[in-house]
Write a protein that binds this DNA or RNA. Structure first.
Length: 770
DNA sequence: CTGCAGCGTTTTTTT
DNA sequence: AACGCTGCAG
């Protein structure tokens, strides 16, 4: 037996050596999912069941794809050329580059990122004379993306009311505009690929015959379009090609049909309990659908966990049991129970940060590497306080997330120059840089240019250059600058071309003049290094195109691998990230902070029933990141949006059995919590503005049976309750909508009939019952 | 055309 | 608290 099989447990081995058929592997957290995936490929290759070019492996992140490649090449000396390993978007990009004609795209089509997409939408709104208040661009963007992810074009979009009809009109024009500019957004990469395969039978047959094994990682995160795409590629024995989402009437008969020579075996690995991306279109339901539509006889469950001690797993299992409609799974471990889980109550977010950092330092002192300590939080805003305390304590740390390298302003400007060099029709790039650095082209000349372009049915760049004499001198200068850049960079090596562009465009001078420009200049230098690195270590699929058109493929790389660049680890540092960002990672010691009702679970997800379940899965992911030690922390008060919020402990804390926990209260909460009357301002820790109110909250918590700070719901506070009509000396009559805070610190939101809703402090507002 | 002041917003995020 | 965007004045 080869090594890669010998190292597996029986379930893992069963999965890896399944006969050539469709399979669904339910792989719990820490159960060796990636190992099974790679071992499966190794097994297919070494037993000659498939040649490298007959295998496709799809992931969601570049990191996961890279990991797979690395581990595979460590397992056997396989030539990975010809094997399609990559992200959904990366593989679709590869497909569209190869078949740009069939897809109706220009050869060097560019990929639109989120903010480019937004800027196109804003432009269209203006041309439609629609109000951004009534049609928020972000909302329109998700409207468009959501439709595309359901396989739905503007022409197919349903609209019964005027408002939606207008949104569809923008959608229609958006599609046309992208087509004119020769750009595609992320969803379009997938949809366009799907449509080409659907409509072009020879091409479809070719790929169906080519790929005999399709392996999918994190299947629970697929959206409907991705699933439909997989079905299409997997071949005719699955559902007939229909628009995704449409019920398929013939499928029942076809699933049972005899095996056809074309078509691939689908090997999907996923964990429904770790589905945390429904908010962006992922549908766990795809797992059930896969099981049914691909007639999967038995789902293999990987339940042995190699990561965490028993107490941690028990906590995770107990928590996730509260979700409904699970496929069902219970993690177990051969290692012992380990230490109990520490639950720590603190007075404030600042107090919490103090305690966490203190505890982390103890861990470091006892020999845990800093990089094995993770501080997790629900939302990015929470990192600030933690960072502050880490900094004061002199503990080195690293924050993940935040803005990515390719998302920085200076990089986006530089990339826009490159895009306009590669593709003059890219209006989005044109608008971004035509007056940056400022060169005297304001909104007036730009509007004139837009009008002319509209009349000529041509791109801004082409219009401007054909208008040579008539346009303003400044516009003419810009066109000449771009022409010069285009000719000078054509034959230069990529890094050198970028360097010239940075100088000649004036970007360099601009940032030299800027006070905070030094870091930006360093980033621009980094962009040049990134180009050098790209040429050196392009992935196989990138290499196919990198030869003929290095610039276009570098730009695609920049769009598709925006996160990769910040992954460089610098030294041994404590890791700070959101729970979402922690998915797929593991640490010896994990702190889950901010466990308060309204924050985690987040209040915005509590309206929908499924929202709370997704939050619970998020908590499940967070817990299962820990190998040896887990801390759960909660605070009575927290600064949010510049205001102190009064919090209740997260309901998730109640869902973990008491016997797994070791509860404690922070020194501050203990000392002052017992005798609030002894408090005085000098006792207060910086950042905690009103500790008395925090204490009052504790008291109220004992009294109140309900959760959250909406304490006024059934009872009066200071003589007021929600729904009550009141009068204010200045604003007149109104009604109380909601309330927060306690005692002297209580505030209420009053909707006044004349001036709308306002937040008022009960102590000062002097409201009178009406 | 440019620069600045004031306003509103604020979950999670990969590609 | 902090950032981005809009509107206004120079």
């Amino acid at each position: 037996m080869p090594d890669f099989l010998a190292q597996l447990n029986p379930e893992q081995r069963a999965a890896v050596t399944l006969p050539e058929q469709h399979a669904l592997i339910l792989a719990g957290a820490g159960s060796g999912k990636t190992r099974v995936l790679t071992a499966r490929i190794a097994w297919l290759l070494t037993t000659s069941k498939a040649a490298p070019h007959e295998i496709m492996a799809v992931t969601f992140t570049n990191k996961a794809a890279k990991e797979m490649r690395v581990r595979l090449s460590a397992m056997l000396p396989v030539n990975m050329h010809g094997m399609w390993i990559g992200t959904f978007h990366g593989l679709c990009n590869r497909f569209l580059r190869a078949h740009y004609r069939e897809a109706g795209l220009p050869q060097s089509f560019q990929i639109l990122d989120v903010s480019d997409q937004l800027s196109i939408i804003k432009r269209l709104l203006k041309s439609f004379n629609l109000d951004e208040e009534k049609f928020p661009p972000r909302e329109l963007a998700s409207f468009i993306n959501a439709h595309k992810e359901e396989g739905c074009r503007a022409a197919d979009a349903k609209a019964y009311d005027e408002h939606t009809k207008k949104r569809v009109a923008v959608f229609t024009e958006y599609e046309a505009q992208c087509q004119r500019e020769g750009v595609v957004d992320f969803a379009e990469l997938l949809l366009r690929t799907y449509e080409v395969l659907l409509r072009n039978e020879p091409l479809r047959k070719h790929y169906q015959a080519r790929f005999r094994h399709i392996l999918v990682d994190e299947f629970q995160d697929t959206n409907h379009l991705q699933y439909a795409w997989l079905k299409l590629l997997a071949g005719p024995r699955t559902a007939s090609p229909e628009t995704p989402g449409t019920p398929d009437s013939t499928e029942g008969q076809e699933t049972g049909a005899a095996e056809t020579p074309e078509g691939a075996c689908l090997f999907a690995v996923g964990d429904d309990d770790q589905s945390i991306y429904a908010f962006r279109g992922a549908d766990v339901g795809n797992m059930r659908d896969l099981e049914r539509e691909f007639a999967i006889a038995s789902v293999i469950r990987l339940e042995q966990n190699y990561r965490s001690f028993g107490n941690i797993l028990d906590a995770a299992n107990a928590l996730i049991k509260n979700n409904h409609g699970r496929l069902g799974k219970n993690l177990w471990t051969a290692s012992g129970a380990g230490e109990p889980i520490s639950v720590l109550e603190c007075v404030s977010d600042v107090d919490e940060a103090h305690c966490v950092v203190d505890e982390a330092r103890k861990c470091i002192a006892s020999g845990v590497p800093r990089s094995q300590i993770a501080l997790l939080y629900r939302s990015n805003a929470q990192s600030r306080v933690l960072e502050h305390q880490l900094f004061s304590a002199g503990v080195s740390y690293r924050v993940y997330g935040g803005q990515r390298f390719f998302d920085r302003q200076e990089i986006r400007h530089a990339l826009a120059y490159l895009r306009l060099i590669a593709n003059p029709d890219d209006d989005t790039a044109f608008i971004r840089i035509v007056n940056f650095p400022t060169r005297g082209i304001g909104s007036k000349s730009l509007d004139a240019l837009k009008d002319a372009a509209l009349r000529a049915n041509s791109s801004l760049y082409n219009t401007a250059s054909s208008l040579a004499g008539q346009a303003s001198a400044a516009v003419g200068n810009f066109i000449r600058l771009m022409e010069r850049l285009r000719s000078e960079t054509r034959d230069a090596p990529l890094p050198e071309a970028i360097e010239r562009m940075i100088v000649q465009s004036g970007l360099k001078q601009h940032y030299l003049n800027e006070k905070e420009g030094r870091e930006r200049l360093e980033n621009l230098d980094e962009l040049i290094s990134a180009a050098t690195a790209f040429l050196d270590e392009a992935t196989p699929e990138e290499n196919e195109t990198a030869m003929d058109d290095p610039l276009a493929s570098f730009l695609a790389h920049a769009s598709l691998e925006s996160g990769e660049h910040q992954a460089d680890e610098k030294g041994d540092a404590v890791q700070l990230m959101t729970v979402h960002a922690a998915k797929g990672l593991e640490f010896d010691t994990v702190f889950i902070t901010g466990l308060e009702e309204g924050l985690f679970p987040h209040e915005n997800s509590k309206e929908k029933h499924e929202g709370l379940e997704e939050e619970r899965r998020l908590m499940y992911v967070a817990i299962t990141r820990a190998r040896k030690r887990l801390y759960l922390t909660t605070a009575y008060t927290r600064m949010l949006h510049g205001q102190t919020r009064y919090c209740m402990p997260s309901s998730f804390l109640d869902e973990i059995p008491e016997n797994l926990l070791r509860k404690s209260i922070s020194a501050w909460a203990k000392t002052y919590g017992k005798s609030p009357e002894r408090w005085n301002p000098s006792d207060l820790r910086p950042g905690v503005l009103n500790m008395t109110s925090a204490l009052t909250l504790r008291k109220s918590k004992m009294e109140a049976s309900g959760k959250t700070a909406a304490f006024l719901e059934n009872k009066e506070v200071n003589g007021f309750r929600i729904g009550q009509n009141v009068t204010h000396a200045k604003f007149g009559p109104g009604v109380i909508l909601s309330a927060e805070g306690y005692g002297s610190d209580a505030r209420v939101q009053v909707k006044f009939s004349q001036s709308g809703p306002k937040w008022l402090s009960l102590a000062y507002a002097n409201l009178t019952p009406a």
